[in-house]
Nucleic acid binder design. Structure first.
Lengths: 342, 342
DNA sequence: CTGTTAGCGCTTTCAA
DNA sequence: TTGAAAGCGCTAACAG
């Protein structure tokens, strides 16, 4: 029987073995749910009892080194401060928990180099899988090279031209829903406050919106600028720009996300422009509280929590060797008071 | 020189050593920032180059087993869906990142048994430290027993009678600020929509509020119920209860957090009660969007991001053997349009 | 400056 | 049913 000292005070398998008078490997078996029936009942009970009495806790790091798995999922997001991301993490956390997996979260701040560092780090940590909800078009190669190393799911932000598994949602439809809504309300001149082009969602939303407008003969004013980030500040900036341009003002404004819509709303309010009296405004995401702002914001609901959960399910399939089909969730239009018929 | 096979395809230190024609430990030294000057420059460069060429990534799990540290911080929250928690995680993540630490997040859903399981899990994973933003009064013992095992910071929710390090904020002052505000506006009958008693913040907010009212001779109506959770639903339920009670209605309502305030607001609106015309309403936390709801919500600002950052700093001290003083942040009152002078 | 050696705590064949 | 032995990939004490 092996004898060991415990240099750092924590109780090991060997301590339990010593105390119970068996070999460490027997303890290992007795405590492993899948192997416990290989140990005679009384022995097992004695071991379990001893382990409990000594306050033994399995050392998951050691187990991980041996088994090659860490029961950890790397979750990479752009910005934890964006409340759009939280439900995704929430759904994902819940979903993978059933597999005994724990999320390890990192934030890119939408910086390519930071993403590279984080990916490197996640690989070094030997996370079992990766969920990336921070992809931008310039990140494709680096993501694919990581995707060859470990199961990877691209979530929330679509990545064009990749073979990596993706769970996204229909941004084109979302854009179309917004345009259709304006059209039905009788608007004839509309504008988009666009998010950055290298985040896959925004060009798609733009396309869905513009295509519908073209078909429906709704005029679309094209701003020469787009948001550098999908933030309140950038929404405000674009709204300012729109007002200062001096053209005939559109009657319908489609902000590419709720934060931008909220930023624009403040600008409109400060400029004495009534929403929805003079201007109808729609956003995207249906953030937790936009139904309560003044006026309640019409928006396209993004199924964040479902998306997180779906990402977890895809991960699960990926981890058991399957190759899950890409998931493509549907947005819905949530009509509130910020849009009105002309 | 040692020769090894690579059963699972990933490049190890030994592969690099083999390729570079040196001993593994030399590679280890060459790649360790703190030991690299112990290796002759040309050798080091050759090693670094080889490592790069082979695509070597350090195995942090193996390193962790050896060094006893995992560069991981367990972060335990009650509910990721509560947008109050996100800035805390955000600040914390940013703060510990500089130490090379990564957060590992878990959610208790305010369930004691789940907390126990999560703590067990975190210990087994050998996280280097723990931040618990989900403590309830009944959790003290279990948290203290974990606190003896590893550096632990209790954050956001104060835990009475413990020696564990805490970073919280002055809930009593927060409650007082709300009461004082109502008093100055001339309100003479007020009420609290209370959060659950076993979350340390709420009784303190209640005390701060009530004490001020007593001293200032403001009458306080005491509801026989309190929220079972600090949620929109429970806020609505208490508001319903308040209205159905048929007493003379208070003119000032202090909801123990913004979610409850928002829930109450909907009920008041549905009941045709104008806020702030008939009823002034104040919340707590200053969630991202409450300044934009109708009416903009007067609330006590909770310094979430700062708190997360402070938790990170305390962790850092704890990890380097220090014993940081408890941190106690200050709330501030944010006056908006949901409260008005009588 | 570099090689040798001995583990970190656990799982997992292979024997007995 | 249990024990023995090897080793996951890395670091660190000790030689040389």
């Amino acid at each position: 029987m092996a004898t060991r000292r415990r240099p750092n005070g924590s109780v090991t398998l060997f301590d339990v073995a010593l105390e119970a008078g068996v070999h460490p490997s027997t303890v290992s078996r007795a405590l492993d749910p899948r192997q416990r029936n290989r140990v005679k009942e009384p022995t097992r009970l004695r071991i379990v009892d001893t382990a409990h009495r000594l306050g033994y806790r399995p050392h998951l790091v050691a187990r991980g080194l041996q088994s090659g798995r860490t029961a950890t999922v790397g979750v990479i997001v752009a910005d934890l401060g964006n409340s759009f991301i939280t439900p995704i993490i929430h759904g994902l956390t819940n979903s993978i928990e059933t597999l005994g997996l724990v999320p390890m979260i990192a934030e890119t701040e939408d910086d390519h180099d930071r993403l590279a560092v984080i990916l490197e780090h996640m690989v070094s940590r030997r996370v079992d899988a990766l969920v990336v909800a921070a992809a931008r078009s310039g990140d494709r190669e680096i993501l694919e090279s990581v995707g060859r190393l470990l199961p990877t799911v691209i979530a929330a932000r679509p990545l064009a031209g990749t073979t990596l598994s993706q769970v996204t949602h229909d941004d084109v439809l979302g854009g179309r829903l917004a345009a259709e809504h304006f059209h039905r309300l009788g608007h004839r001149l509309v504008v988009q406050l666009r998010g950055p082009d290298d985040v896959g969602n925004f060009p798609l939303r733009g396309t869905g919106f513009s295509d519908y407008c073209r078909r429906a003969k709704v005029d679309e004013l094209e701003l020469p600028q787009r948001g550098r980030a999908p933030s309140e500040e950038e929404g405000a900036r674009l709204a300012d720009f729109l007002l200062s341009a001096g053209r005939p003002l559109p009657t319908g404004v489609f902000a590419h996300n709720d934060l931008m819509a909220v930023g624009a709303l403040s600008v409109f309010r400060d400029a004495g422009i009534n929403v929805p009296g003079t201007l109808s405004l729609a956003g995207y995401n249906d953030l937790p509280m936009v139904g309560l702002i003044d006026p309640p914001l019409t928006t396209v609901r993004y199924p964040s929590m479902e998306l997180g959960r779906a990402a977890g399910e895809m991960l699960s399939q990926l981890l058991s060797g399957g190759s899950p089909a890409d998931r493509f969730l549907k947005p819905t239009l949530v009509v509130r008071a910020s849009t009105r018929a002309l």
